[in-house]
């Protein structure tokens, strides 16, 4: 740990050059620097690029370089891109595919993740630490490689595909017998890999929430004659709502803009919105349109989230007002 102390002590020697500088640094300079440095960084490398994109969405594509300009159709801010967004089938369909896939993946994540999180609260403390580590570990290992791992399983010759085919052939009537199951390049593959990749994001917030719940409430309900299933429905489930919403957002939002998973295992003829944005930019060279789609997606994702935070804050306030 001595390395840490060295780095902590190093900046202290800097301001001793002149009296007033050191005075300023000790009094408030260090605090100002601490605030201003990340602030400026974020303004330049996050806010500014985003504002450029937002402004770009009101421009129009031209054959100049850079390929856009404002006011070519008589208005300084053109709404043409947004009009196209609502009328062109490509955008609506890809948006629907994205939201649909994201919704299914989120629900499946919840159905698997909820019992997992609940089970984690019921095992012994030493086992729990190890199991939590095992939930987090895939999050650290390469995302790309975890998607890649599935490509091997989806292939028509893989043990996974042959196993599933064998199960299907044993259960289904003989007429429906298959040689192999087509899994690569389907929406099924996309949703499955999404669930796989984002499951830890569902389990962790749910676990954090469920772990804090007061088990005596369960016991009280049980003593009053509730059956275990009713206890779950009436006590545990409502109390874990914040965890469900947090986990749901953590899965739904990144998944709907996902580019890697549909790019590797998805159906190219059914693009998701992320693909459309990047194609619009890179292949069609239509920066304004790509920007408009990006802004629309962001609005679609962020507005419900802000509403949720708003109402959550209101509910907290109301709760605090009650005696």
């Amino acid at each position: 740990m001595s390395g840490m102390e060295d780095t902590a002590a190093a900046p202290a020697t800097r301001p001793r050059r002149t009296g007033w500088l050191s005075l300023w640094f000790n009094r408030r300079g260090w605090a100002d620097i601490t605030i201003a440095t990340p602030f400026l960084w974020l303004v330049v490398f996050f806010l500014l690029p985003f504002l450029i994109v937002a402004a770009m969405s009101f421009a129009l594509r031209t054959s100049t370089s850079p390929p856009f300009s404002f006011g070519t159709d008589g208005h300084l801010l053109s709404l043409q891109n947004y009009a196209r967004l609502l009328t062109d089938d490509l955008y609506i369909r890809s948006l629907a595919t994205s939201l649909m896939n994201a919704a299914v993946a989120t629900v499946v994540c919840l159905l698997i993740g909820y019992p997992m999180a609940l089970a984690l609260t019921r095992v012994s403390r030493s086992a729990r630490n190890i199991l939590l580590m095992l939930v987090i570990l895939p999050f650290w290992t390469s995302f790309l490689l975890r998607v890649y791992a599935w490509i091997g399983l989806f292939g028509t010759n893989s043990w996974f595909n042959r196993g599933l085919t064998a199960i299907w052939n044993a259960l289904a009537p003989a007429d429906w017998a298959l040689h192999s199951i087509q899994m690569m390049n389907t929406n099924f593959a996309v949703v499955l890999v999404m669930v796989y990749s984002y499951l830890p994001f569902m389990v962790l917030p749910l676990y954090a929430n469920l772990e804090k719940l007061d088990l005596t409430l369960n016991e009280a309900a049980m003593d009053l004659g509730s059956r275990p299933w009713r206890v779950f429905l009436d006590v545990t489930l409502p109390l874990s709502m914040p965890g469900i919403i947090a986990g749901g957002l953590l899965v739904f939002i990144p998944v709907s803009g996902e580019l890697v998973i549909p790019g590797l295992v998805g159906n190219p003829s059914q693009p998701m919105i992320g693909r459309v944005i990047s194609d619009e930019f890179a292949s069609a060279h239509d920066w304004p349109m790509a920007s408009a789609v990006a802004v629309a997606l962001l609005l679609l994702l962020v507005v419900p989230m802000m509403l949720y935070t708003h109402f959550e804050a209101k509910a907290q306030e109301k709760k605090a007002m009650e005696p």
């Binding site: 994109v53 803009g257 962001l298």
Partner: peptide
């Protein structure tokens, strides 16, 4: 706000805005 919003920004949008920038 600037610290938390990149968390909910899909990677494609971050990438495109940085590239245009």
């Amino acid at each position: 706000g600037m610290v938390t919003s990149p968390l909910i920004m899909p990677d494609v949008i971050t990438g495109i805005s940085l590239l245009i920038f």
